[in-house]
Design a protein around this nucleic acid. Structure first.
Lengths: 245, 245
DNA sequence: CTAATAGTGTCTCTTAGACATTATCGG
DNA sequence: CCGATAATGTCTAAGAGACACTATTAG
């Protein structure tokens, strides 16, 4: 009985052309480093809703466009930067997340090197940086706060604060066992720079010898005999990321 | 120049009511244990496309329905089972994943206890079990194969094989450090049963003393003084899952 | 008693953290 | 030489795997 009813309900829904569909967008967490600290690229909304608030760059998914392609397109259009890393995060589908209409958004995380981040920021007036303050609340990724250049706390539009928090959580979780950390660094880097990136993302200091051992044992690092230049102290060796075997 | 052009392109997309939208569905990986081995609940498709093939239960997302609610509704309608665990997996949005029209699907993972799995299977003729064979390819979650009750390899409809593979990968990744494993067990269980579940999902044998130590140290297990009954050997103590503090 | 499995003690090995020491640059 | 940081050696502590041993049930 219940079975038949639910089957009927399903069949009634089966031709979706007869029913209103949610709109589908992608939103990007464009994450990079600014002065060694994690930061995201935001657009300041001019119109309602949430006028004046900062939001993640995003766009509608074209009818003939794959989700990943839509994310790549938004990345090009909004930032004009080739990403070192682009991955799907999570899909947000609360009914009232946008007051205008029903919009489901697929959130993506894009990682930029510090150089790319500042370059995009300088070239694109529409984008503003938001410093991401990582409250070291252990695992549970506390209420990540985003700060303006001036240091005020920014209230992000829609559910975008939740998306940024999830992005940081995901990044923290993957940092140690995956290769994502290298997407935030230039081609050549020192072990100290790599450790700085990890410490900035994790929000906690790390043990130097242990960090070196782990990273070198992973087999990800290719030593180039070359050394850092321009230091007033002993220069560190430059490494290159060896792409996953 | 390029900037202006892409801005215009974006603005043109901005009112989505004028544009065709992808349809949005949820698909469920209903995972349980059958004879101690991981298995999923599948529906055999009667119509084109992929007629005769097995597919994951799914349904369209209502215009006023949150994604999680849609997943819960499909779970009720298709299986009639209260889930111990329901989590979003990933969103699949390749353009041609469904030949009829553009459909983006949000995949969910639902975990059922062995009792619930067999009960749903007995009550719902539309659902058939598919044994999930875990090829122990280390991390990389090889091409997970799904077998029918008879033992033949099932070719799943659409990209559903990919979804099942991702579900197993996710489950394997979370099993050790999260509480998902308990969703596959009844209220009271022995440590051996818990270890059996972990071994079935991971596809590899585990060390008994180390496993016991880890699980007990986690603080997840509440000893009930009670013992197993009906064994012809020393009965094991029954534990209860202590919900996350 | 035996058979079978639960549960535990202990050893070793690996890995991480802590700390000190040596190495190498600029000036 | 000094100051600063890179790079490394070594000790210790924590956790996992291996293995054997004891405990407890049915019959």
């Amino acid at each position: 009985m219940i079975q038949a009813e639910s089957e009927a309900a399903f069949l009634a829904r089966y031709d979706p052309a007869d029913y209103a569909r949610p709109a589908l967008t992608v939103d990007l967490v464009l994450l990079g480093l600014q002065g060694g600290q994690p930061a995201v690229l935001l657009v300041k909304r001019a119109e309602h809703p949430h006028a004046g608030r900062h939001a993640l760059p995003g766009g509608f998914v074209g009818i003939g466009e794959a989700l990943d392609d839509a994310a790549g397109r938004v990345l090009r259009e909004k930032a004009g930067a080739p990403p070192a890393h682009l991955e799907q995060l999570y899909t947000f589908g609360a009914v009232n997340r946008d007051p205008r209409m029903r919009i489901v958004t697929v959130a993506y995380l894009a990682l930029l090197t510090e150089a790319a981040f500042t370059e995009v920021l300088a070239r694109t007036p529409a984008l503003q940086p938001g410093r991401v303050a990582v409250p070291w609340a252990g695992e549970a990724g506390g209420p990540v706060t985003v700060l303006s250049a001036g240091g005020e706390v920014l209230t992000l539009a829609f559910d975008h604060a939740e998306i940024v928090a999830l992005a940081m959580l995901r990044l923290r979780g993957k940092l140690d066992y995956s290769e994502v950390g290298f997407a935030l660094l230039p081609d050549l880097f020192t072990l100290r720079q790599l450790q700085d990136v990890h410490e900035a993302i994790l929000g906690t200091p790390l043990n130097k010898p242990a960090f070196r051992r782990r990273m070198l044992d992973r087999g990800w690092l290719e030593p180039t005999g070359r050394l850092e230049t321009g230091t007033s102290y002993r220069p560190a060796e430059l490494f290159r990321f060896r792409k996953g075997d």
